[in-house]
């Protein structure tokens, strides 16, 4: 345990291979309290594997992970008491209503039912779902489900939020709503770890980010600093350079889902 280490998440030299192929190949980064940190990369770059390792859901082959002061995976369960997770794929509980989803999820944190019930209206309000408390999950739109998943991740009032592609599949309006919510959480002092492959999302939300390819970090810094470093002059005379230009320059133009 690093008592002097205030980083909510510190990853050092993380390695994980599947069938001999490295998915994560010596990754190191550390989050600062209160920031939004982006983990960017093409499909198959190792982002989700990294998150799984950080949450203690996969044992790394090598490296050390310290999550909220606890060694992972050894004490992952204790560390997760203070983490909120928005997974890449929807896993809301389809057998329950929106409010019941929050109530049931709070029980996994051993919270007393009365304490959770007291928080549910505020959580639904935050998610813009105040009128949907008693509605079944199956009737919610994609954007509503994502917002409810975000509210569910806040049921334990976490210090660190881990979001794996939180806006994939959403329309621009729904993405904006999620972004506004995340900005509010950052204003409250929460730390966010975000994976995405929307460069506008990373540019808008992230204080710092790393670009990962083939399990390795190939660039890191603030969105502005990365753009300035790689494109002192814009590649287009019609618009300023953006993070997507940097991403494509560094990771190439070939498709990665083969």
């Amino acid at each position: 345990m690093h008592d002097d280490d205030d980083s909510p998440l510190r990853v050092e030299n993380l390695r994980k291979a599947y069938d001999g192929k490295p998915a994560v190949d010596g990754l190191s980064f550390a989050l600062e309290r209160g920031e939004c940190f982006g983990l960017l990369g093409p499909n198959g770059a190792g982002k989700t594997t990294t998150l799984r390792c950080c949450l203690g859901l996969t044992a790394p082959d090598a490296g050390t992970i310290t999550l909220l002061g606890e060694p992972v995976p050894a004490h992952a369960r204790v560390a997760r008491e203070r983490v909120g997770v928005v997974p890449q794929f929807d896993n809301l509980d389809p057998d329950f209503t929106a409010a019941e989803n929050l109530l049931i999820y709070g029980r996994y944190f051993a919270q007393p039912a009365a304490a959770i019930r007291a928080r549910i209206p505020a959580l639904l309000e935050f998610a813009g779902l105040a009128s949907k408390a008693g509605v079944g999950i199956r009737t919610l739109s994609g954007g509503m489900k994502r917002r409810l998943t975000l509210a569910r991740a806040l049921v334990n009032d976490p210090e660190l939020l881990v979001l794996d592609e939180p806006t994939t599949g959403l329309d621009p309006q729904a993405r904006r709503l999620i972004w506004d919510g995340l900005k509010k959480l950052l204003d409250q002092g929460k730390t966010i770890l975000l994976t995405t492959h929307f460069m506008d999302e990373a540019e808008y939300l992230c204080d710092r980010l790393v670009i990962v390819d083939s399990g390795r970090i190939i660039a890191e810094g603030s969105p502005r600093a990365l753009i300035d470093a790689h494109f002192p002059v814009s590649p287009s005379s019609l618009r300023p350079a953006n993070l997507e230009d940097v991403f494509l320059k560094l990771t190439g133009h070939e498709l990665r889902d083969g």
Binding site: R80, V83, N91
Partner: peptide, 14 residues
């Protein structure tokens, strides 16, 4: 199918 376990495992439940 529902990935309910996956959701639970993100909470402090092993």
């Amino acid at each position: 199918v529902q990935r309910t376990w996956e959701g639970i495992m993100n909470a402090p439940v092993s």
